[in-house]
Every structure is written in structure tokens, then in C-alpha cells.
């Protein structure tokens, strides 16, 4: 269990109970149940079309569900109380491009009912949090990609929500800005904010998230800490990654005989003991495959995801 999970409170900030949402014949969310506590960051991972966006929008109160319930700090999603307790950072840059950073923050602050001194204070806090103080009078569309992202995040924080939904906040951001964004999110989490974080980058989930829920075809197919997911999926097994020169068909046929799979020209196997490696490679030699390199590793979050969904996260 990570340090931050230990820090997380016992209060349930966000709760999703048996949520179902259908669009015609398509069931986008199929009986999802989740809980996020104050000070906890829940990573929501899933391939494209898995139902992440519909789930996030349900939390915001922008979806009329077929059944189930979503509550934010005990209030029905979409209610005024829930709106005031929730911050939503959409994946798209949902800011006004033709007005300045300060004016953007002012507009969103007023939409949340802030005015006077409280509004000024919130703008100052957000500018500081997003490290945009020096750019506060710059028009939003003239900012760099990373700064726009930070402004996009700050606009959702004006009312200091207790629950924040980050929907892929680092898309198209350079590594330096990404680090800055991580620090902003970590600061929030450490201050007791409950966070739901969706991403296509496994390393982000590993760094930021205390718990991870993997969603596919509208269902939560695994949930827990990174270690718990690896343990549940692979037990004490390790992974062998072997790269060969030769025809792809021959490599795939060999991998299939040993319950492995081939991705990016690398054959991947799960083994329980190191002794299983030698027979595996002997059989490859017999099959006429020329070994280029071989790696033995402990499965990671990406292995879990691939194993459970059959797809890579960016698919």
C-alpha cells in the first residue's frame, strides 16, 4: 500500500453504484461500481471505446443513466451541491481562447457563484497553483500547449472542489510541462482532494494513482493498487520477452505453441520458474528462429492491462 493511500481519509467523496448507461443497443457503462475517498487518486484505465468518457460524464451529471446512482460528497450527481463539490478537467481545452488567463479564471469562477474578494482570492490561488502568474494577462490562445493545459486545469479548480476528475490532462504536453502537471495533481491529492484520473500513459497511472480500475466494454474488469493488480493477474509469475529475427508467421506459430503472444515483434510468455526459459528457447532454435535478445522481468501495470483487455492502452 502506498504512502498516499495510507494518507487517504475514510470519507467516501465519490461513489458510483451499479451504474448502467445504454445508447440504443450499445451498453456504454454496464453495472459499474466505484468508490473514491478523500485524498485518494483513482486511475481509470481502459482502451478507447471502453466507456471511460461516459462514466466520467455520469460523474459530472451530464448523462441520464438508465439505472444506478452517482453521488459526489453524498449528493446526487448533477445537483447544485454536487456541482459545487466537483471539478471537471475535460480532455479538450475547454477555455475561452480570446480572453486572458485571468479573465478565463474570472469567468469560470463567476459560473460557480464566486464574486468579490472570494473571486479574487480564487483567481490568485489558481494562477499560483498552475504557475501562470506571469502569464495572467496573456490571451489564452497565445499560450504554449503546456500552459493552455494548466489553464484548462485551473479553470476547473476555481471553486476549490473536493472531488476532481482529470480526463487525460497531459495529452499533447511536453515532458517538462507534464512533470509540472504531475506536481499540481500531487499537491491537490496531498491536500485531501479526491481525484479520478484517466490516462493513456501507464507511467502516469503508476506515478499518480493509489488505486487503479481497468474498464473494458463498460465493465470494471479489475481494481486495486498496482501491486494488487499484478498479484491478482500474474500471481508469482514472471514474464519472458524474447526478440527473434525471422519470419513473423514462424515466430507467432512458435509463441502460440507456448501460450505466448507477439507484440511489436517481441514474443511474450508468462513463466512460474526461471527453469522454464531454457526449454522455451530450445524449441525456438528447433523451429529455426534466430534469437536476438531475451529479457526476464516482473509483470507491470502494462502487462496486466494487456493481459486483461487483450489490447494495449493506446489502442
Amino acid at each position: 500500500m502506498t504512502a498516499s493511500v495510507q494518507k487517504a481519509g475514510t470519507e467516501t467523496a465519490l461513489e458510483v453504484g451499479r451504474l448502467v448507461k445504454r445508447f440504443g443497443d450499445l451498453t456504454a457503462v454496464d453495472g459499474v461500481s466505484l468508490q473514491v475517498r478523500a485524498g485518494e487518486c483513482l486511475g481509470l484505465l481502459g482502451p478507447n471505446g471502453a466507456g471511460k468518457s461516459t462514466l466520467i460524464r455520469s460523474m459530472v451529471g451530464r448523462v441520464i443513466q438508465d439505472s444506478g446512482r452517482v453521488t459526489v460528497m453524498g449528493h446526487e450527481a448533477g445537483s447544485t451541491e454536487a456541482r459545487l463539490a466537483l471539478g471537471w478537467i475535460p480532455q479538450e481545452l475547454s477555455i475561452y481562447p480570446r480572453i486572458s488567463c485571468r479573465e478565463n479564471l474570472g469567468s469560470f469562477g463567476r459560473y460557480y457563484g464566486l464574486k468579490g474578494h472570494a473571486l479574487k482570492e480564487a483567481i490568485a490561488w489558481c494562477l499560483h497553483w498552475a504557475a501562470l502568474e506571469e502569464k495572467q494577462d496573456d490571451v489564452a490562445k497565445t499560450l504554449s500547449g503546456g500552459m493552455k493545459r494548466r489553464l484548462n486545469m485551473a479553470a476547473g479548480m476555481m471553486h476549490r472542489p473536493k472531488v476532481v476528475l482529470f480526463d487525460e490532462p497531459t495529452v499533447g504536453v511536453d515532458p517538462q510541462s507534464r512533470n509540472r502537471i504531475f506536481e499540481m495533481i500531487e499537491a491537490l491529492r496531498d491536500a485531501g482532494t479526491a481525484i479520478v484520473y484517466t490516462t493513456h500513459y501507464m507511467e502516469e497511472a503508476e506515478r499518480l494513482c493509489d488505486r487503479i480500475a481497468i474498464i473494458d466494454h463498460g465493465r470494471i474488469i479489475a481494481e486495486g493498487t498496482k501491486e494488487e493488480l499484478v498479484e491478482k493477474t500474474f500471481g508469482r509469475c514472471s514474464q519472458v520477452l524474447a526478440r527473434f529475427a525471422g519470419e513473423t508467421e514462424a515466430i507467432e506459430a512458435w509463441a502460440k505453441r507456448h501460450d505466448g503472444r507477439v507484440t511489436h515483434e517481441t514474443a511474450e510468455f508468462t513463466i512460474e520458474q526461471a527453469g522454464e526459459i531454457a526449454p522455451l528457447l530450445d524449441d525456438a532454435t528447433k523451429a529455426g528462429l534466430e534469437l536476438v535478445d531475451v529479457t526476464l522481468r516482473r509483470p507491470n501495470l502494462e502487462s496486466v492491462f494487456l493481459h486483461l483487455t487483450g489490447r494495449e492502452l493506446r489502442d
Binding site: V60, T80, R83, L86, P90, E92, S94, I95, F108, Y111
Partner: peptide
């Protein structure tokens, strides 16, 4: 199109 409308509608507006 930019998603700003949906975001605004998630506030008190």
C-alpha cells in the same frame, strides 16, 4: 465543439 459549453453546463450555469 471545443467542449467549453459542456464544461460551463457542469458549473452552476
Amino acid at each position: 465543439e471545443s467542449g467549453t459549453l459542456e464544461r460551463v453546463l457542469s458549473t452552476r450555469v
